[in-house]
Nucleic acid binder design. Structure first.
Lengths: 155, 155
DNA sequence: GCAATTTGTTTTAGGCTTAAAGTAACTTCA
DNA sequence: TGAAGTTACTTTAAGCCTAAAACAAATTGC
């Protein structure tokens, strides 16, 4: 008899979780030893690198899937280190515009290059075909998760 | 031209990371609202539920992939709540044996049932075939990650 | 026996994380 | 205008997380 769907889901989830946990730990360790930085900081810089113009704190929290309070602390530390700069919107003084500094952009580019190489090495034993399949399945899964009922969704 | 392997790895990794992040958030939210508990606590209970005999703190950290210092705090809180109990090994007084209490086992069983149903619902849009493929690929990935050079590995 | 080392666990310092409460600024609308 | 409501962000309290230092108990080598 085939496994019931629920048991199969649980097995898949635990395997996925373990793989991502291990990969995350490797990346965190690498960022720590090579750049004395952290993954959340890298994520913020990465989100800002993708933008051409300054974006607001709220836009950043939406993108990063973290709470706004959390982002405040992260941005504070990155501003202290001179990697990003913050500016109050003259038209709406509640709003902060955040942008990568030149130093921040350089730091990110350097980290991103090593990050990409590390990630690639972690997936090196997977065949091209397996990677294509994995991309397709994770894309499907993400769509399903995005379309499904979200925590705070109006009717 | 096909994507270079490194770019493909990055894409797959980001999709995997986003999916697991979303799923984890749903699970955390669920544990919080339904059981006023957390995912790390659930993980500890889950690891202990699988054991027939008490296990040591060190064995638990190995299983859970968390630091020993982190586990100390988690176990303290679970002991306070009466979900697990701790006992010093009479033969080696450095060693703590940890075991699920009857209350802890009941609490876990109840949480695990809902947890399984939630996880299954999150994967509900994936076909059986896709799930089988995903299981195979994540299993392969985990083996590769386990066999590859780990952070603290002797030559 | 006993000093040196190793091992199992806890403590500490600092960063990440959230939800909830708080603050300030803007908008609505009478 | 100005009270009520909304929005953008920060602060707070509490838990999670790690690496490194500290501690205590066991083992090893003389």
């Amino acid at each position: 008899m085939a496994a019931p769907h629920a048991k199969q889901s649980l097995r898949v989830w635990l395997r996925m979780l373990r793989a991502t946990t291990i990969i995350e730990k490797r990346i965190r360790g690498y960022l720590k030893t090579e750049f004395d930085s952290t993954l959340p900081r890298f994520d913020v810089l990465s989100a800002l690198d993708r933008e051409t113009a300054p974006i607001t704190m709220s836009q950043l929290t939406d993108h990063l899937l973290v709470s706004n309070g959390n982002l405040t602390g992260l941005v504070n530390r990155l501003v202290e280190d001179g990697l990003i700069s913050r500016e109050i919107d003259p038209d709406d003084r509640r709003v902060q515009h955040v942008v990568l500094s030149p130093d921040g952009r350089n730091a990110f580019r350097e980290m991103a290059e090593k990050h990409e190489a590390l990630v690639d090495s972690l997936f090196s034993e997977m065949s091209d075909e397996d990677m294509a399949t994995l991309l397709r399945l994770t894309t499907t899964l993400n769509s399903a998760l995005q379309n499904g009922a979200r925590p705070a969704e109006d009717a």
